[in-house]
Amino acid sequence: MDVNFQEVSHVYMQKTPFETLALKNVNAYFRASSVTAVIGRTGSGKSTLVQHINGLLKPSAGVVSVGEHHLEAKTKRKTVKAVRSHVGMVFQYPEHQLFEETVEKDLLFGPKNKGMDVAEIQKKLPELLQQVGLSESLLKRSPFELSGGQMRRVAIAGVLATNPDILILDEPTAGLDPQGQKEILKLFMNWQRTYQPTTIMITHQMEEAAAFAEYMYVMEDAEIKMQGEPETIYAQRKKLQEMDLDIPEQVQVLQQIEQDSGIRFPHYQLSPAEAADYWRRAVQNGGVPRV
């Protein structure tokens, strides 16, 4: 399912002294089944942007098209609900949304609300749990007995249970240790490969964006300031730094080496072993002026 923003603006607390413009004439396009990252510092408007996709916020001006539906300032709740049934959203610290007595019930909350075939989905829960890296023996346990990492996975499974056409991830790895972050990201990458939803991920971490996304939007002060493929974005390090953003450590290191040695890497997604091999070959071919 495609998502398209046309000239979308959003004003918070309209007509109060606290009025703020949270989105300013945003145009953005998310192609069906693609993975897009939205980057920006806290308060740049990233969360506001994605909350328009399932009608949690309505545009003050402009149109958000989701598939064949259009969301505008005056869109009826029926349309909003229809759109919502296609969209799954993993919020920051999603474990805070768990509430049922058992993991199973919590997983079925979404499908039930969205009028799906609950019996059918219930049969698939063991598989779903496995996909998020949990054992099916947890189904009858209370979500509040689980560890923090397990709770996060249950909450994520609760969103994936509806198998959404559009999957929105709002800093899904925040607060986890590096190992946990890697695992969660991998989980989403596998999911994406299998079910091909249109995935939109908000993140602070350039590393994550680089590993997962094929396209990036960079936001600042309620506007989209940069867009393009990750490599194009990283090429503009200065501009990023002006927005208090930095390129991934990996890209920094490789760029530094390029600068000092004059050797060019083919791209910046090389694994350490690949980068070392590439370097050795370049040196053997006499491509090193200064080492």
Binding site: R84, F91, H96, F109, G110, N113, K114, G158, T162
Partner: peptide, 19 residues
Amino acid sequence: QETEKIIKAQTARGADFNK
């Protein structure tokens, strides 16, 4: 803030607080 966030999260999961 927390209430708003949880309402949003559950609404995104299809819960309806008004109707």
